[in-house]
Design a binder for these strands. Structure first.
Lengths: 226, 226
DNA sequence: ACCTGAACACCGTTCAAGT
DNA sequence: ACCTGAACACCGTTCAAGT
């Protein structure tokens, strides 16, 4: 706080882990996953590439911290509602929206199990499942099914957004293109995919995501009453 | 077939897309995802790096073809059973085992939506859901929930295997380490994760995976009867 | 203690030159 | 038509040298 006097006098802030992570997020949001390089980071922070290593361990460290900086507040803002089920829906939706706004978070979550953001999700989901009056055996399988499902959706959403961005057409246009390709598939070998193509075009991501959560919760409820 | 006479006389096969993909799979299996480079591929195929580009478009093309070469036969071998539910379980398990044997497939599936292996999975799952007497609305949400769940598990499994390999300790040891870390979490802020740590150590991946599928299927069944 | 920036050991991809 | 391998434009990471 009281150090780096010369720099702060000039109105420049000193290089900190927090500034590095913030700039990494800005880079990831604006340039996509390939936009985060130590050289770009150094340029944006007006420093040398090597200086960054004084505050972070490596690129994974930066990526993970950036991911946590999105996930943690998203989870804190969620978990509203009278019943565990309602809270689970708001938690899922909070994550969904956060990943929708920052697709690289979805990619990162799929890459780093056992890290902070991951643990926060497991805990948030698990606490609500615990409050749900389910059999002990269903506690583990239910919570992990929910987490896997959420991460699966996150990963696919992230991939769609990334491919849309890479091709410079955006996610919506990418999905539209995909739907068109599906609709032209051979009806003999791909009857289902072909029949569902139109759904892909008009579907509501958020609603479908919630429907999946409800399906799992209903499955858990069915288990309880048997 | 009749070309490349000089090479085939010497017992060497000519460079083909199939050979490239086969060697890529071998490299991915033995050296992990970072082991697949065009230089390593060229060395293994006893050719120049540039020659490979005559048969494939780019690295994504190789990765995608390799992924499909694992997924397609895995799906063909699966889909056994009397009821759609049983077939869905064998399909899921077939994929699970294939990804367990080739973790990089899990990573690749999460990276490339709308590609061949992905479409095969959607179709295989969708056909069974279609045969299951569910409401039209549940057809889409059920099939996509199942796919998202399967891909989510695949991604996490792949990440665990990759991290285990990168640290040179294997996946089991990595999970053990993770379980230990979870067991030492603060009971106040991470009560669930802490309480579930022992489960993480002793759990059966395959059984848990199936339990999640059953949960979703039960949820779909519950929907039908209401 | 913190920062600089050149250097190292890699990448994917291209392309003139060969056969 | 197919292959070679040097070259290009990058990476993440390290580290002597500076302040």
């Amino acid at each position: 706080m009281i150090k780096n006097t010369r720099r702060t006098q000039r109105g420049e802030t000193s290089l900190t882990r927090a500034r590095i992570v913030a700039e990494a997020i800005a880079l990831l949001d604006t340039k996509g996953e390939s936009g985060l390089t130590f050289r770009a980071l150094a340029a944006a922070l007006a420093t040398g590439a090597g200086a960054i290593y004084f505050h972070v361990a490596d690129k994974d460290d930066v990526l993970n911290a950036a991911c946590d900086a999105i996930v943690a507040p998203a989870l804190d803002a969620a978990a509203k509602g009278a019943t565990p089920r309602e809270r689970l829906r708001t938690i899922g939706l909070g994550l969904f929206d956060a990943i929708d706004a920052h697709p690289w978070v979805g990619t990162e979550l799929a890459r780093a199990p056992g890290t902070m953001p991951m643990m926060r999700i497991v805990e948030a989901v698990g606490q609500e499942v615990s409050a749900m009056d389910v059999a002990p055996a269903t506690l583990w399988s239910g919570a992990s099914a929910l987490c896997s499902y959420i991460l699966g959706v996150a990963g696919q959403n992230a991939a769609n957004a990334r491919l849309g961005q890479e091709r410079g057409i955006g996610r919506a246009a990418f999905l539209d293109e995909l739907a068109h390709r599906w609709s032209q598939l051979d009806a003999g070998t791909y009857p289902f995919t072909r029949s569902i193509a139109e759904q892909l075009r008009v579907h509501d991501d958020r609603a479908d995501f919630l429907a999946g959560i409800d399906l799992i919760l209903d499955g858990m409820a069915a288990r309880r009453s048997r």
